[in-house]
Structures are given as structure tokens and as C-alpha cells.
């Protein structure tokens, strides 16, 4: 019977070993927050909450405020979602309602492929192809026809908030579209059949499906938002990198992620480094909140659907 005790011993060791590594993940997140908090302590101490509301960024005078970066991150993300979400829903409807079945595999492969293209490749393309096109064609066109809106007023630089939003929307469209397609596919056929049987048109049947899939599409959008908020390279190359808040989308701006990418190696003083790490901490907290919210939403939707299917 000694062998039994020996194997039990092995089981206990193995179980605890794997548990220790699972615990390591938990520890890692806590540790990441602690590390950033520790390094940014002098900035947090000096500026307090006003760090989030001040718009000076002056490494020479050692005065730092994160507002222009927070503004840039939020507005570029908003522009990206405004462009990407309606298009993704259109693509998702096409794929789930209109596309023939044989198209499904190549499309899902294509989407996977796109999700795998590194951000830097989008950045290089945006920098050399999209920005000149925005400067010479899109922005003059917008200011000619929609110039009465302050958003589309001003000199067409090419680099700026609008370009950042457009490149971000290109990057997240496949992700939002593919999740939305899965959600639309999960709508019970009965729902659509009932709408058609009552004399509804095909679109009206689709609309029933859309209202059924609303929270799933919402979850997909928030997941996309989570990705857009922290996107670095593509944005850094097209946004113009100027810490200013301006009403026009044509003007250069700056995001939290791109100020880190550009200035981290130049941070010569402790306070400068501390302020940059605080920006990273703020970005981290924002993305954690957004992602947690998205996960909870997706979880609750799938759980509800599973319960409904029984």
C-alpha cells in the first residue's frame, strides 16, 4: 500500500505546482500595477489628481499633465468606432444572411489573417499611402462640403486625429465583424422564420435577428474599443504627435500609447520618467475597466443563450 501513498504524494505536488503557476498569473497583474505605481510615485505625489486634468506637457519646466493624451486616445478611439461599427455590422449581416455557404471558410481564414497583420505594417502603409491621400483628397473634400462643422475645419495636414481614427477602424473592423457574425449566426432560426411567416420582408426578419444580437454586438464593440485604446505603432505613425487639444479632426494630436512610444527613451530626469509611467498606469487601468466590462457582457450573453437553448 506504500505505492498508493506515493502516488497521492505525486498528485498533491503536481496539483499544487499547477496551482502555483495559476497563482503566478494573478500575482503578475497585481505586480504590474504595483511596479507602475512605485515608479510613478513621485509624479503622483507632485501632481495628484490634477495630472489627469492639466494640459501642460513641458519636460524642461518639469510640468506634466496627461489631458491632451487622454483626449487624443478617447477621440481617436471614438472616430474609429464611429467608422468601424456600422461597417462591421453591415459586413456581419452580409456574411450571415446573404453570403453563400462556401464563402464561410475563406472569409474566416482571411479575417484571422488580418488580425495577425502586425500593427507596424498598418503604420507603414498609413504613413506612406493613406496620409498623403488624406492630405490631398479626403480632407480638402470634407472641408469643402462639411466645413460648417468645426470638426472638419482647418488646414489639411494629412497626419492627425482623423487619419488615426481611420487606420484604427481598418484594424478593428475584421474583429468586430467576425464576432458580430458569430452572434448573428447564433440567433435561433425560429425568430426569423416567424417574422417571414408573418409577411415581413427579408430585411425585417434580419432586424429581428439584430435586436436579438444587440448585446453581443455591443460586447464585440467594447472588445474592439479595448484593442483600439492601447494601439500604439499605427497611431504613432499617422497622428502627428502634438500634445494639443483642438476642435478639428484634421489637426495633429497625441495619444497615451504614442507618447510612451516616442518619449520613453528620452526621459532623462526621474520626474519625466515618473510622469510617463503614470500615463502607462492610467492607460492600463482604463483598458482593464473596458476589457472587464466587455468580458462580463460577453459572458452574460453566452450564459443567457445557453440557458435559453435548453
Amino acid at each position: 500500500m506504500t505505492s498508493t501513498t506515493q502516488t497521492n504524494y505525486g498528485d498533491t505536488i503536481f496539483r499544487n505546482l499547477t496551482r502555483a503557476f495559476a497563482f503566478l498569473i494573478l500575482l503578475l497583474i497585481v505586480f504590474m500595477v504595483y511596479e507602475m505605481y512605485r515608479t510613478s510615485a513621485s509624479s503622483i505625489e507632485k501632481f495628484g489628481w490634477s495630472f489627469l486634468t492639466r494640459s501642460v506637457w513641458d519636460p524642461v519646466q518639469e510640468e506634466y499633465g496627461a489631458l491632451p493624451f487622454i483626449y487624443g486616445t478617447l477621440v481617436s478611439s471614438a472616430v474609429a468606432l464611429v467608422i468601424a461599427v456600422p461597417l462591421s455590422v453591415g459586413v456581419a449581416i452580409f456574411l450571415s444572411e446573404l453570403a453563400p455557404a462556401w464563402l464561410e471558410r475563406p472569409v474566416s481564414f482571411f479575417v484571422e489573417l488580418l488580425a495577425g497583420i502586425p500593427s507596424i505594417v498598418y503604420g507603414v502603409w498609413g504613413f506612406f499611402v493613406m496620409v498623403p491621400w488624406m492630405r490631398t483628397t479626403v480632407e480638402p473634400l470634407l472641408s469643402d462640403h462639411l466645413g460648417f462643422i468645426p470638426l472638419f475645419r482647418g488646414a489639411p495636414y494629412g497626419v492627425g486625429m482623423l487619419s488615426a481614427g481611420v487606420i484604427l477602424s481598418i484594424m478593428i473592423l475584421p474583429i468586430i465583424a467576425s464576432i458580430s457574425r458569430d452572434v448573428l449566426k447564433a440567433v435561433p432560426r425560429v425568430q426569423k422564420e416567424a417574422a417571414l411567416a408573418l409577411g415581413g420582408t427579408r430585411w425585417e426578419a434580419t432586424r429581428i435577428g439584430l435586436s436579438y444580437a444587440r448585446s453581443g454586438i455591443m460586447g464585440a464593440t467594447i472588445l474592439g474599443l479595448g484593442r483600439v485604446l492601447g494601439e500604439t505603432m499605427a497611431v504613432t505613425m499617422v497622428i502627428g504627435n502634438r500634445p494639443a487639444i483642438s476642435a478639428s479632426l484634421f489637426d495633429p494630436a497625441y495619444t497615451m500609447a504614442s507618447v510612451l512610444a516616442n518619449e520613453f527613451t528620452e526621459a532623462t530626469t526621474d520626474m519625466y520618467l515618473s510622469a510617463l509611467v503614470e500615463i502607462a498606469l492610467v492607460l492600463f487601468v482604463i483598458t482593464i475597466i473596458v476589457n472587464s466590462f466587455a468580458r462580463l457582457l460577453v459572458w452574460s450573453v453566452t450564459r443567457k443563450n445557453q440557458a435559453g437553448r435548453v
Binding site: I29, M32, L223, G230, T232, L276
Partner: peptide, 16 residues
């Protein structure tokens, strides 16, 4: 938390 970690911006892991 693993799901949350997968959403952390890559630049933040660089800072850490």
C-alpha cells in the same frame, strides 16, 4: 484575469 491580461496594451507590458 487571464482574459483581462490578454487585453493589456503591449506598450504597457514594455513599461513594466
Amino acid at each position: 484575469l487571464t482574459d483581462v491580461l490578454s487585453g493589456v496594451p503591449s506598450i504597457v507590458t514594455g513599461v513594466v
